[in-house]
């Protein structure tokens, strides 16, 4: 491990530093559709510019590969940026890293990284920082705000570069080993399995589509949602994802889908169906 850390070229170090700086904008352009897609791509651009310089077609493929839904922790996501940089590098060098494999690795790691990041920062450090800070603030002391910024905000910024570097070295070492043994095909398949399992879980954890409808049986009424939950919980969520997936496949524009959802939501709530 130490050997490889030593082995980072000045160019790699420079690129890693530039990615760290740009990763500060991970949440920039955040919206409910692709979440941090643009922030992630923006952060990765120094690496892509290095790797695909002068090849517009490959550059376009790489940009499109990353300009897609990602939802992770703005600070812990740096690890993923480092790992993806390593993958892109192998791909650019002509190793058999498929586009799909990169997407799958992103899809499977974004959730756990967000989970770790959220529990460390949003839940632990933020609550500690606010808990100490509030006592000062209620007395009218500005120290409260500063303590909060230091405990939560300071650590948030400090861990980015180390995590990015860890992701990059880990990716480079491990992948090199795999290429030598010729096991990338197996890894691609494993990544697909991992990615799809995680997305299956995300459908349930990110979405919560329910209905307040009740069915009357004479005197008693039974909530439809309770019945649905006993058959397939989150059934409406998975149906929604499936319908949207089909719409996107049929080239319905995302603007139309988003607009349609608002109209649909208001109509459903007017009819008291949802």
């Amino acid at each position: 491990m130490t050997q490889v850390v030593k082995g980072l070229t000045p160019q790699e170090k420079k690129t890693l530093f530039r990615i760290t700086m740009r990763s500060n904008l991970m949440n920039g352009s955040m919206q409910a559709i692709k979440r941090q897609a643009m922030g992630f791509t923006y952060a990765l651009i120094p690496a892509l510019a290095d790797l695909y310089k002068g090849d517009k077609k490959k550059m376009a493929e790489a940009l499109q590969r990353h300009d897609t839904f990602i939802n992770t922790h703005a600070s812990f996501g740096a690890f993923l940026l480092g790992l993806v940089y390593a993958l892109e590098k192998q791909k650019a060098e002509g190793k058999p890293v498929s586009s799909e494999m990169i997407t799958n690795i992103k899809a499977s790691l974004m959730g756990p990284l967000a989970g770790i990041g959220d529990s460390i920062f949003h839940i632990t450090l933020r609550v500690i920082g606010a808990g100490i800070g509030i006592n000062f603030a209620l007395e009218g002391n500005i120290v409260g705000a500063l303590i909060f910024l230091l405990i939560y905000g300071g650590t948030f910024l400090a861990i980015k570069y180390p995590l990015l570097k860890a992701g990059y070295t880990l990716g480079t070492n491990y992948l090199k080993d795999l290429f030598e043994k010729g096991l990338v095909q197996s890894l691609t398949k494993a990544a697909s399995i991992l990615g799809l399992m995680m997305v299956g879980g995300l459908v349930s954890s990110l979405m919560n589509v329910t209905t307040p409808l009740a069915i009357k049986f004479g005197e008693t009424s039974v909530a439809l949602q309770t019945m649905l939950d006993q058959i397939v919980p989150e059934a409406l969520s998975i149906i929604t994802v499936f319908v949207v997936y089909k719409l996107i496949k049929r080239k319905v524009s995302i603007t139309m889908i988003a607009f349609g959802m608002i109209v649909f939501g208001i109509a459903m709530s007017f009819l008291k169906i949802m």
Partner: peptide
């Protein structure tokens, strides 16, 4: 209705993925 729509939105990102 806006809250209902808000609950539907993550489906777009997941669908693209």
């Amino acid at each position: 209705g806006l809250t209902v729509a808000g609950a539907l939105f993550p489906a777009v990102g997941l669908g693209i993925l």
